[in-house]
Amino acid sequence: MKLKGRSLSTLLDISQNEFFYLLELSHKVKKEKRDRIFPKRLINKNIALIFEKSSTRTRSSFVVAAHDEGANAEFLNRNDIHFGKKESVKDTARVLGRLFDGIMFRGFEQKTLEDLIQYSGVPVWNALTDDHHPTQALADIMTCQEKLGNLKGKKIVYLGDGANNVAHSLMIASCYAGMHIVICSPESRRPNDFIIKECLKINKETGSILEFETSPMNAIIDADCLYTDVWISMGEEENKEAKERIELLKPYQINSEIMAATKNKNTLFLHCLPAIKGMEVTEEIFESMNSAVFDQAENRMHTIKALLIATMQD
């Protein structure tokens, strides 16, 4: 697969075959890590980690993945660089592209990421924007493969805010994987129309199914996996709109009643974390035997490592 030098803005940037290649490589590097094998494929590579939004899993995953492969990761937050303020994103990108072999961006606007890709001249990876979260979706599908085996036709139901970045990337990834994905959300929080259109194109090639439902009880029957995310994004906590959204999404909480209604005692529970227990999911479900959230969190590192290797290895 010719991914060297490529950026990852959204999962639509890669083909289905490239998607599966990244997953296969993820499983390989996870086994290497378990066997204490460190091939150091990225020695003398330097990676800039730009954080407009803070994170536990993303920062830790990129740092550990880079270190395991012999690369250096430099953390840059909003106080470290004049990003889009005293210096334009375009100029910052051209400077960082001269100094680093790759750039990770975790922030707000997709446009900022696109500018980094356009002007830096090095691979740029989307570690979360308001519209997409592709590295999370890679870890989600890797976890489903580990727990559910062959994913063709497996039913995954996302409950909650269908208009957010996690739902968007999960839709694309699930369609690539040939799954039956249901986005269960209020009508006002449906996913982006463009992403829906692109997923329907993928479905024609993969045989996957994409459905939308407003009723949790209708959506979850025979689900192999239930997935949710926080209802309020970072920085929105005090917004009036955020409080209204919480009220709107209360019927979409994953709890014991919802889990039992799947009629599948082995239904997997996933959450990208951090979770607000008692809001989008109850403590009981989060800590249950069905929960794979910490396998999912670990897999962020393995899938990120695969992405770094695939796009930067000489």
Rank of each mutant, 00 (worst) to 15 (best):
R59N: 06
A167S: 15
Q253F: 01
Y158L: 14
R36H: 14
V63H: 15
V122D: 12
E280P: 10
G160V: 01
C184P: 11
S55V: 04
M234N: 02
P134T: 05
K85H: 08
T135N: 10
E18Y: 11
I209W: 04
S26A: 15
K240C: 02
G97T: 04
T267G: 13
I156K: 10
V281M: 11
K45F: 05
H271T: 12
T135K: 14
L249E: 12
A48W: 04
E257R: 08
N239F: 11
D101A: 03
T311K: 03
K28L: 11
A167P: 04
K86P: 00
S174C: 15
V157D: 10
E146G: 07
E247V: 00
S288K: 03
A292Y: 11
F212E: 09
V29K: 04
E109K: 12
T112G: 08
I183L: 15
F62H: 05
E52R: 00
F212Y: 05
A292M: 05
A48P: 03
I183P: 10
M259N: 02
S9Y: 04
G235R: 00
Q118Y: 02
I309F: 10
I43L: 15
N164A: 12
K30R: 13
E238I: 01
K33N: 07
M104N: 14
G97K: 07
K305H: 03
D130Q: 02
D131T: 06
A275E: 06
Y158N: 14
E284T: 08
L148T: 09
L42H: 13
A219T: 04
R189N: 14
H302K: 05
L25Y: 06
I254Y: 07
G84F: 01
E237G: 09
D224V: 02
D68I: 00
V29P: 06
Q16L: 00
S88R: 14
R78L: 00
A260Y: 05
A139T: 01
L170Q: 08
K85C: 03
A292W: 01
Q136E: 15
N255V: 02
T143C: 14
S208R: 06
D35S: 05
I202N: 10
A163L: 13
L96K: 07
P274Q: 09
A306K: 05
C175P: 00
N290W: 06
A260H: 09
L116E: 05
S256D: 14
F51K: 00
E18H: 11
K4I: 07
D229F: 02
D35H: 07
K2Q: 09
R190P: 00
S60L: 15
L200R: 15
A306V: 04
Y119S: 09
L11E: 06
S291K: 05
E213Y: 01
E238S: 13
I43E: 15
R41N: 12
F286S: 08
S256Y: 03
N255M: 08
S185V: 05
E247P: 00
E241D: 15
F75N: 02
V29S: 08
L151A: 05
G102W: 01
L11P: 03
E237I: 06
G5A: 11
K250N: 13
H168K: 04
M312V: 01
K240S: 14
L12V: 02
R300S: 04
A65M: 09
N290F: 04
V166M: 15
A310S: 15
F75V: 13
I181K: 08
R78K: 12
D101N: 15
E109R: 09
L49E: 02
E109F: 01
N79K: 12
N46E: 07
V166L: 09
A163T: 03
D295E: 12
E211M: 07
I246A: 10
